[in-house]
């Protein structure tokens, strides 16, 4: 029952998404908007400015280093959250949640 309802709900969504995909530039089109703004700058200047031949590293660690710092903080917080959720640090009160 719920499966049929879900399929019924998702069929219009598929139509909408495919319709939207038809408006996107073709894959591999180098005149697409994604290639228009900062990407040419990175490709033209990254090596001489950052000394990294790998453009992905140049963007990740240099141009957007602050962003990557945030990502690392997210990962670190996720690790701490895992420890706190599972309560593996408090040895004194094992099974505190009454399991």
């Amino acid at each position: 029952m719920i499966r049929r309802l879900t399929v019924l709900l998702l069929a219009p969504a598929l139509v909408v998404l495919l319709q939207a995909a038809a408006d996107l530039p073709e894959v591999g089109d180098s005149t697409a908007p994604a290639f228009a703004h900062v990407a040419p700058y990175y490709l033209a200047h990254a090596h001489e400015e950052t000394g990294a031949a790998n453009y992905v590293t140049a963007v990740l660690a240099d141009y957007r280093g602050y962003d990557t710092f945030g990502e690392l903080t997210v990962i670190f917080t996720a690790g701490l959250a895992c420890l706190l959720i599972l309560g593996v640090c408090d040895k004194a009160t094992p099974g505190r949640d009454g399991a």
């Binding site: 990962i75 670190f76 895992c82 593996v88 094992p94």
Partner: peptide
């Protein structure tokens, strides 16, 4: 950082039966 966090998550998930780290 990534290596430490991933090992930490694995340990936390694998050792929940024992309740110790």
């Amino acid at each position: 950082g990534v290596a430490g966090v991933l090992v930490l998550i694995f340990d936390a998930l694998a050792r929940w039966e024992d309740g110790t780290l």
